[in-house]
Nucleic acid binder design. Structure first.
Length: 390
DNA sequence: TCTGGGGTCCTAGGACCC
DNA sequence: TCTGGGGTCCTAGGACCC
């Protein structure tokens, strides 16, 4: 494959930065987003010290990160590290609004965009770079840099927010590169930069190597991406399996052929909730039942709003010891009906042990099909009408 | 003081069919 | 009486990501 110009764009401390547009007076102070919205006093800005209850940090500003807090950390633990950091509950509707704004702004400059969630995207700049090179740009990597600067300006003009961009020949390297100079950075790497810029980094920086694989690699004496690249391929395959082991080795060498995918259909839609206090399956039966039904109604609303039906109904349950179990059941016909979802999920519930307190309850609908798809294309039911042209 | 909510992908065994 | 291989669907769990 001829060389590509792939960008990864990552919004800087996205949720917190959106909040700072609303509360500019908080700029420069350590700020953390997370936890539940409170009732009447919801608007009051509190410090971490005042918080009690379950919840994790979704975003911390760079000022807050200096105290050692970061996304994913429990709020009670974060409060020990940074008791005076300010805490705001997440406002996802607002973040989604800004997400649409920044993505529109990027697409106006470079249309080949892959969505990777609310605050990041991949962009294939190859066509843009090559067409401008024909106009006489001397160095295509320099031209890619110019386009990225245009994108950063467009995002700032549309939202007031900053982002970091990495540009390399593939998604894997760009994802790493965008992180190298945050916030507001622009990092361009070619294959030749891999030994100097990528190999010294910890393996955990590779998208796809998580905490489990990291710990196992560490036990093998492999800490950096360079050590992973030098590791015996057969050893990695023996340890991690043919597929994952071989992939790891390729990744460590900076090799990745995945395309930038501009459109994809959802595979499942779900709703789940963690209770403020663990609930007892018998004593809190009525409350659990009410929450259960509510989750089904919300999933049904989501399906309807997005225009999907689903055939596989799933239940998720997390016990007080954090052990999680799932059950699912595939129906004969896809449904979007809350009562039908509730019935199927209720059957799933009969197949799990209810012998300890419950921390989380969730409902999922998978095997999705478009709600407006003609019945005969998804149902093999003999009742489905035959297609007639006239 | 433990650990949110929304997803995707992979693996692996068993059923069932040809 | 013992022995096939391939393909697809279903289910459960787990790793990982944002």
């Amino acid at each position: 494959m001829s060389s590509r110009f792939i960008a990864h764009l990552d919004m800087d401390a996205f949720y917190a930065s959106v909040e700072l547009l609303r509360y500019p007076e908080l700029r420069g102070r350590p700020l953390v987003i997370g936890g539940r919205r409170r009732g009447a006093e919801g608007a009051a800005i509190r410090t971490l010290r005042e918080y009690s209850g379950r919840g994790v940090i979704t975003t911390a500003t760079y000022e807050a990160r200096k105290f050692g807090v970061n996304s994913g950390m429990g709020l009670m633990k974060a409060a020990k590290l940074a008791p005076d950091a300010l805490l705001l509950p997440a406002d996802f509707d607002e973040y989604r609004r800004y997400s649409r704004l920044f993505k529109e702004a990027v697409r106006a400059v470079a249309p080949h965009v892959e969505d990777r969630g609310i605050d990041e995207i991949y962009i294939d700049l190859t066509a843009l770079v090559l067409s401008s090179a024909a106009e006489g740009a001397p160095d295509s990597w320099a031209r890619a840099r110019v386009i990225a600067t245009d994108i950063q300006r467009a995002v700032r003009d549309a939202t007031g927010l900053s982002c970091s961009i990495g540009i390399t020949p593939n998604k894997l390297l760009s994802k790493i590169a965008s992180e190298l100079d945050k916030p507001g950075g622009l990092t361009v790497l070619t294959e030749g930069d891999v030994p100097a810029r990528i190999w010294p980094l910890p393996v955990r920086k590779v998208n796809g190597i998580g905490p489990k694989a990291n710990a196992r690699l560490e036990r093998l004496g492999i800490r950096t991406i360079g050590e992973l690249a030098k590791a015996d391929r057969a050893l990695l395959i023996g340890q991690f399996g043919t597929s994952y082991g071989a992939w790891m080795h390729e990744a460590a060498h900076g090799r990745d052929e995945r395309a930038v995918v501009t459109h994809s259909e959802p595979k499942s839609i779900s709703r789940e909730t963690t209770f403020e206090d663990d609930l007892h399956p018998v004593r809190d039966r009525e409350r659990l039942s009410r929450i259960f039904t509510e989750l089904c109604v919300r999933v049904a609303d989501d399906l309807k709003r997005k225009g999907y039906l689903g055939k596989t109904i799933g239940l998720k349950l997390r016990y007080d010891n954090f052990k999680t179990v799932t059950r699912d059941r595939t129906l004969d016909e896809p449904t979007g009906d809350a009562a039908a979802i509730r019935r199927a999920a209720g059957e799933c519930l009969k197949r799990v042990a209810l012998d300890r307190r419950i921390r989380l309850l969730g409902v999922r609908v998978g095997a999705l099909s478009k709600a407006d798809a003609p019945a005969f294309s998804r149902a093999r039911s003999p009742a489905a009408p035959a297609a007639t042209l006239f």
